[in-house]
């Protein structure tokens, strides 16, 4: 039994026994259902008129009732939603050790602290990506059920890249959430950080310098402000990578070095 596999087994057991994966999956599953609702509204303009604001919002978000619009909505919803839902997962994985006072059971063990933190990052990544894939699958089913035109294999591949790419770009940024859930010794500082970064990401996108703000990059990748080839550059991905590495290194450093008084 290796250092890392022991830690991974422990983290997996904690995840499977928790209700948080179920709740996050249910929360995330609202995105395809909302997309499907917009498609139904857009397919029937008469019914849409009677629904007032919902119709306006639906047109604003998707334009026409077809597969490209639906998958575009899905990618943007996942990009926006994943920042919150992945944060909840990360906050739970790290912050619960402090709120349940179990952190002291993880510090003086033959299994290294580094292995435990690496296992936590792996588990939250697997959990987040599985939920994203489930949502993608649910989106396909919803799209088929509402019967919209414009389906193609190319669209399937492009959508998968958009959705999984957005999720993959969001995940490394969770290192800062992990750091704050640890150093803040609980849930609230990390929640505050998530709200702050979401606000700043929106602000930076509006001010058209989102390509320089790492937390705006997953949203821009999903096409929320136009094709990503126009809104993002290589510098954006490098910046996101450097930022994420800083977050991960800081989290490991904190667990290795900070005084653990709880």
């Amino acid at each position: 039994m290796s250092n890392f596999s022991s830690a991974l087994w422990a983290e997996m057991l904690k995840m499977f026994r928790s209700k948080v994966p179920l709740f996050t999956a249910i929360g995330f599953s609202m995105a395809p259902l909302a997309g499907g609702l917009f498609m139904i509204i857009l397919k029937d303009p008469e019914a849409a008129k009677s629904l007032g604001l919902i119709t306006t919002k639906a047109q604003l978000l998707t334009g026409t009732a077809d597969w490209p619009s639906f998958m575009g909505f899905m990618a943007q919803a996942v990009a926006a939603g994943s920042m919150i839902l992945f944060s909840i997962i990360t906050i739970w994985v790290f912050g619960r050790e402090f709120s349940d006072h179990t952190v002291k059971e993880l510090l003086a063990l033959p299994t290294s602290r580094e292995a435990i933190i690496a296992a936590k990052f792996i588990v939250l990544s697997i959990w987040s990506l599985v939920i994203t894939l489930l949502i993608f699958g649910e989106g396909l089913i919803v799209g088929i059920l509402v019967v919209i035109p414009g389906w193609s294999i190319d669209l399937l591949q492009t959508s998968l890249v958009d959705i999984l790419g957005g999720a993959a770009l969001t995940l490394p940024l969770m290192s800062f959430v992990a750091l704050l859930a640890s150093s803040g010794r609980g849930y609230m500082p990390a929640f505050g950080w998530t709200i702050l970064t979401l606000f700043m990401a929106n602000l930076s996108a509006i001010l058209v310098w989102g390509d320089w703000f790492p937390w705006a990059i997953p949203g821009l990748f999903s096409g929320v402000a136009g094709p990503r080839t126009e809104t993002l550059g290589t510098h954006s991905y490098i910046l996101l990578l450097i930022t994420s590495i800083i977050g991960i290194v800081a989290t490991f450093w904190w667990w290795r070095s900070a005084d653990q008084t709880r």
């Binding site: 022991s6 422990a10 057991l13 063990l109």
Partner: peptide, 15 residues
Amino acid sequence: LSVRENLDIARRLHR
């Protein structure tokens, strides 16, 4: 987690 599962986690982490 059950008492047994809590101890099983400790067993694993003690390798």
